[in-house]
Amino acid sequence: MLTDKYGKEIDEILSRYPVKRSALIPLLYLAQREQGYVTEAAMKEIAQLLKLTPPQVYETVTFYTVLNLKPVGKFHMQVCKSLMCALAGSDTVIGWIKTKLGIAPGESTPDGLFTLSAVECLASCGTAPMMQINDDYYEQLTEQKVEKILGDLRTTGTSDLKSGPYMWPLPVAVKGEK
């Protein structure tokens, strides 16, 4: 039960809105954080918390791409394939990952570590090609970077190649790569 574990956080979320249903997406995020995807039990619990019917929760979940109804890999690699990234070679990036991990978009590695998705624009067109892995963005991808990111994730679960606060081009006084 989410309420047992996150009672306080749930109360805080509910306190932000004058109408309960507004807390739906925030609570779904909580559920997804807990299990990697939104389970049926979580949907029912959230429905009860917000005085909604389970179908009302379900219809909302299915509308949004960030919310998963099925388990995904530990690292969900989402490569932007929209035009702007495509102009900078995002199809190639997908190709690299395909060869390195042996998975096509929509597939997961057998060990459940990686899932690859091709997604639409993530607001990084200036630093294309890019991908998002779980919460983090990785930009201006090159084959070497992809290689390193995959390695880092496997070994440490994170990678220092992930982007910080966005700015491009960088302030002039600072030279070099970010």
Binding site: L52, T53, P55, Q56, Y58, E59, T62, F63
Partner: peptide, 9 residues
């Protein structure tokens, strides 16, 4: 009743 959900988009 709110039993019907338009699922997906």
């Amino acid at each position: 009743v709110k039993a019907l959900a338009p699922a997906g988009r």
